[in-house]
């Protein structure tokens, strides 16, 4: 019973993507055919690639530059996020201090405040700060929603670190650098890597912040797809291709987390953001 329910959801979670694949490979898919009337490979003489993928690959669509923007922004967001969140997570995990609850609450606040409200406010303050329409403005804006998630996850990772080990190393003459390099880094790396991967993924998902702060300059893949959707019409092949492209990072992440980091990471309670 539990197994049927579980596998039912597993299929419901993955099977819908098959329709995206079909839509992206169809040459003609008219009503009421369940499968394309004409697949792309049957029309190879007219089109080199499936229509959707051909357009995505062409320079006219700006899909590849957008993908590059997605990746570079997400990389910078991850790096900046780790630099600011890790020290805070370490303090929250190991120290007791006055105002601790207030600090934790402040760091969780971006989870509750709607992204749209932050984005609308940032659209103006970004102009005042001179970062509107810049790559850096988008990066700084993206760090906000990743922050609660990074701090929570990294604090959990830090809590799992046995500080007696560091004391023992120090007693035996290790300096701060040696403790970090030979002890903390190897022990914490899997957890930090998992947190970093989620921050990266989250950044590639953000649309509203990117549109309003980037003001056209920060055209990521998610923004491109957002701009094509809506209106209640059937999905066009290009949108299907873009959606599949945008699914890729998440699938890769799942493979990495399950395959590579599986035994060493405990992500319990870490999944904070959808």
């Amino acid at each position: 019973m539990a197994r049927v329910w579980r596998w039912g959801w597993a299929l419901g979670a993955t099977l819908p993507f098959a329709a995206l694949v079909v839509a992206s490979l169809a040459f003609r898919w008219s009503w009421p055919d369940l499968l394309p009337t004409e697949w792309w490979w049957e029309a190879r003489r007219t089109v080199r690639l499936p229509i959707g993928w051909d357009y995505v690959a062409s320079s006219a669509s700006r899909a590849l530059p957008a993908l590059l923007t997605s990746v570079t922004v997400a990389t910078a967001v991850t790096a900046l996020g780790l630099v600011v969140a890790w020290p805070a997570a370490r303090v929250i995990a190991h120290e007791r201090f006055r105002g601790r609850q207030a600090v934790e609450l402040a760091l969780l606040a971006p989870l509750v405040v709607p992204e749209l409200a932050v984005a609308l406010g940032l659209a103006v303050s970004a102009v005042q700060l001179g970062v509107a329409g810049t790559w850096w403005g988008v990066v700084a804006a993206h760090v906000v929603p990743t922050l609660p998630y990074l701090v929570r996850t990294l604090a959990a990772v830090e809590q799992g670190f046995d500080r007696d080990l560091a004391d023992a190393a120090r007693v035996h003459g290790a300096d701060a650098w040696a403790v970090f390099w030979f002890l903390r880094l190897p022990l914490l790396a899997p957890g930090v890597a998992a947190a970093a991967l989620f921050a990266f993924l989250l950044s590639t998902h953000l649309v509203v912040l990117t549109v309003l702060v980037g003001q056209g300059r920060g055209e990521t893949t998610a923004v491109q797809l957002f701009a094509r959707l809506g209106g209640g019409a059937a999905l066009d092949p290009v949108s299907a291709a873009l959606a599949l492209l945008l699914t890729l990072p998440g699938v890769l992440l799942l493979v990495v987390l399950d395959g590579v980091l599986r035994r060493r990471v405990d992500l319990r309670g870490a999944v904070l953001r959808m």
Binding site: R3, R6, W7, W9, A10, L11, A13, T14, P16, F17, A19, L20, A23, W31, L201, T204, H205, L206, V207, A222, L225, F226, L229, G230, G232, A233, A234, L235, S239, A240, L242, A243, L246, T247, P249, G250, V251, L253, L254, D258, V271, M274
Partner: peptide
């Protein structure tokens, strides 16, 4: 199954919208 179940969590909402469109739209 537990791994596959997580997939929706790992795609952005715009992809979920694309899926809803391809399945539920008028000629979907």
């Amino acid at each position: 199954a537990a791994s596959l179940v997580q997939v929706p969590l790992l795609v952005p909402y715009v992809v979920a919208v694309a899926l809803a469109t391809v399945w539920l739209a008028g000629g979907g």
